[in-house]
Each structure stands twice: as C-alpha cells, then as structure tokens.
C-alpha cells in the first residue's frame, strides 16, 4: 500500500502543520495579490496589457490551425431559416446615398479603384448557408449570396495585395472598421455579399455590399463596405479598440 506511516510527537505534528498551512496561505495570498496586480496594469486597446499579450500569442498559436480546407458547416436550402437578427448599426447611421455608392478599392496609397455594384454582381456568384456566430454567444443559420473575395482578388489583379498580412474594411462614414488577416479573407467561404435569403440585402444588413466571413465572429462581418485596403500592419479595428481579440477567428 502506498501509505507511509511514522510516529511523531504532538510538537512535531504541530510544527509540520504550521509550516504546511503557512505555505497554503502564502499561496492563496499571492494568488489574490497577483489578481490585484493584474488589474492595476495599463490597458492595451481596452484589454489589460498582460492579457492582451496572451491573446496575441493565442492568435499566433491558433492561427496555425487555420486552413483553407477547414470549412464552416453549411446547411441545405430546404431548411426553414429564422429571420436574420440585426445586431449592430454602427456605421449605418450617417446619411447615405445608395445610388451613388461605389466600393473604394485602395490598391496602393493614391491608387484607388471605384467599383459599382453591377460590376461586382457580374462576377461569379457564390451562396452560403452557415451558422453565423456572434461574439456574444448566439448563432443563427443564415443564407447569403455574393462574390468570393478570392474571385474578386483574381478579377481586379490583387495578387500582390492579397499576399500582404491584413485587409482593412470600413463603412463609407468610417464609423465602423475592421482589420482581418488576408488568409481568412482568401478563405473560399469569405464573400463580398449583396444578397440575403436570395434577395438584395436590406439596408440594416448592409445594403449594397457587406462582408460575410464564416471563419470569424460576427463583429468582423462589416456591413455597408465603403473602403477595402491592404496593409502589413494591423488596420484599425473597432472592437479591438474596445478590448476584444484582434484575430477573433473561429
């Protein structure tokens, strides 16, 4: 049996007990002090700095799992779908003229291409029905249609740009903006979306063009795309600035 036995005096037992409990209280005390220390640290983009460093390390670790061959589960068209939830209006509140909208594609600083919605609709269409996942924890099977971002890249000769680290997207009024690694942007399920449930996007879902990127949480699915640009540095990201993980990859 794995039990060691010995004979000790009361005094020895008391001494050993005292030492062991001292270690326990030192440990629990330092756990509390450590927790308090953590909360005294400066914040980095809304998150406590040491935590932010680990979140960035998590990105490094978990982005290695990323593969273009890992797909978000898709669903059949026959399934009755719930009405897609409208969960964010940031960037959609400014006066907006749908008739004059053009996508601003910044190929390089000073080299911006303006693209109309009809040109985008002329590209091969891709539809996806997947479980849209909000960072709040809810999810909804929803149906979207548009052009694969990778097809868009091919059509507009963005090979060089797509090899940069990040794409930055923002609404026409620049109130909402996201930064996304180009690997995720080039995933075959990522689409520049102009249809929901087979009909043009409603205004509150980002008419005329929004991003659908199933490998990310909903916060990255920017509605009403105004500008797309590329960078090797993290483009500004609305929720990142408010303490969320930059990568937010699923």
């Amino acid at each position: 049996m794995n039990k060691r036995e010995e004979l000790l005096t009361e005094k020895q037992i008391r001494r050993r007990t005292f030492i062991a409990f001292t270690f326990l209280f030192l440990f629990l005390g330092s756990a509390i002090l450590g927790w308090q220390w953590l909360h005294r640290q400066p914040t980095d983009h809304g998150a406590i700095q040491p935590l932010r460093k680990v979140l960035d390390a998590n990105e490094f670790i978990f982005s290695s799992l990323f593969s273009k061959k890992h797909f978000a589960k898709t669903y059949s068209k026959d399934l009755p779908l719930p009405h897609p939830r409208v969960n964010g209006k940031i960037g959609l509140n400014s006066a907006f003229d749908t008739a004059t909208w053009k996508l601003h594609l910044v190929k390089a600083p000073g080299d911006t291409l303006l693209i109309g919605i009809d040109e985008i609709k002329a590209l091969p269409k891709t539809e996806i029905i997947f479980d849209f996942k909000c960072i709040e924890g809810w999810s909804q099977v929803t149906h979207w249609g548009g052009v694969r971002f990778s097809d868009f890249v091919k059509k507009y000769g963005l090979d060089e740009q797509s090899k940069m680290m990040f794409a930055g997207l923002s609404t026409p009024d620049d109130e909402y903006y996201v930064g996304i690694d180009t690997k995720s942007m080039m995933h075959p399920q990522t689409i520049l979306c102009y249809e929901m449930n087979g009909k043009p996007l409603p205004l509150n879902q980002g008419y005329p063009l929004r991003l659908i990127i199933p490998v990310k949480y909903g916060i990255k699915h920017l509605k009403r795309i105004g500008t797309i640009s590329f960078s090797n540095y993290r483009p500004p990201d609305y929720w990142y600035e408010r303490g969320y993980d930059y990568y937010s990859g699923l």
């Binding site: 998150a47 935590l51 680990v54 960072i135 408010r242 303490g243 969320y244």
Partner: peptide, 13 residues
C-alpha cells in the same frame, strides 16, 4: 464581455 473573454482565454492555459 470583452473583459471576460480576455481573462478566460488566458487562464484557460
């Protein structure tokens, strides 16, 4: 939520 996530995804390790 953001605070909770930042703590959760650090202490998970």
């Amino acid at each position: 939520l953001a605070e909770g996530m930042s703590i959760h995804f650090v202490f998970m390790w």
